[in-house]
């Protein structure tokens, strides 16, 4: 009599304990002029469902390579990447990437770009409404029929965000998505992403070289070092949200992190 009840109670717990993303001893070696380059070297970590983790490090430390490995654009030389129990072997709409540069399709309008990936997944009669909803979500309702070349860099990244959110990915991979934006726009985009994250609680891996950005966004920071690319340390960010960049707690955290670089 008791057993089924117990099962029901324990099942969600098991699922919660399982990481959304598991990186197991992953290495990536590229051939170079003088031998081999160990871009990612024996990296392991877990990310829990709904967690926002920042990969922080200087350029060239392999953080973008690591992201591409998770996305499935390239294959690891050794090790294993698992998303819930499935091994990553190729790119797929369950792990969506927002790229550093503008990677929108220049011949499609804003709304067509957003609809692009959703075409096969969402039935035709609901697609238009879904696109509209996501346009509003990123605040681009008035720009639906504009081409990418006609809108600003910040707007392009909003489109890039909307076109992956519409696929309802389990995992959002962001490769310095706001790196090319001016300070004000960057802050707006951070706030937008955080409010969307609070609403939908995606699991997010966010690559950045900006300390302030990492402290603003992350639940946990994975600090990477280069040559070879390794995780040097793992720093939980236990500041309460919403985080104020001018607060004392933020400042002391920043100084502390800065001293560890």
């Amino acid at each position: 009599m008791n057993k089924p009840l117990q099962l029901i109670r324990t099942l969600p717990d098991i699922k919660k304990e399982q990481p959304a993303l598991a990186i197991r001893k992953v290495s990536k070696i590229f051939p170079s002029d003088d031998g081999y380059l160990n871009v990612v070297d024996n990296v392991s970590f877990d990310i829990a469902a709904g967690e926002l983790v920042c990969l922080l490090g200087p350029s060239g430390c392999g953080k973008t390579t690591l992201l591409k490995l998770i996305a499935g654009f390239i294959k690891p030389s050794a090790g294993d990447i698992q998303i819930q129990d499935r091994r990553v072997s190729r790119p797929g709409p369950d792990r969506c990437v927002v790229f550093q540069e503008d990677a929108l399709f220049p011949w499609l309008t804003v709304s067509e770009n957003i609809a692009f990936g959703a075409k096969g997944l969402i039935p035709k009669d609901r697609l238009a409404a879904e696109v509209d909803r996501h346009l509003e979500m990123v605040g681009l309702g008035a720009f639906r029929d504009y081409l990418p070349k006609e809108i600003s860099g910040g707007m392009k990244q909003r489109v890039a965000l909307a076109r992956v959110l519409i696929l309802k990915p389990q995992l959002l991979l962001m490769d310095e998505p706001f790196g090319a934006l001016d300070a004000q726009t960057r802050e707006d985009m951070q706030n937008l992403l955080l409010s969307l994250w609070e609403e939908f609680s995606h699991t997010i891996v966010f690559v950045t070289h900006d300390l302030v950005e990492a402290i603003t966004m992350a639940d946990r920071i994975l600090l990477m070092g280069s040559n070879p690319g390794k995780i040097r340390s793992e720093i939980p960010v236990n500041l309460s949200r919403p985080r104020k960049k001018e607060s004392n707690a933020f400042h002391s955290f920043f100084r502390n992190l800065r001293s560890r670089l």
């Binding site: 996305a71 654009f73 399709f105 997944l121 076109r163 992956v164």
Partner: peptide
């Protein structure tokens, strides 16, 4: 054609054959 467009296509679930018509040819148009 910018390889990023390909990667974007792959992550949005576009396979190789559809990619030719949905990404490659329009981008090279």
């Amino acid at each position: 054609v910018n390889p990023l467009l390909y990667q974007a296509g792959a992550m949005l679930g576009v396979g190789r054959i559809r990619g030719i018509f949905a990404i490659l040819l329009p981008a090279a148009m």
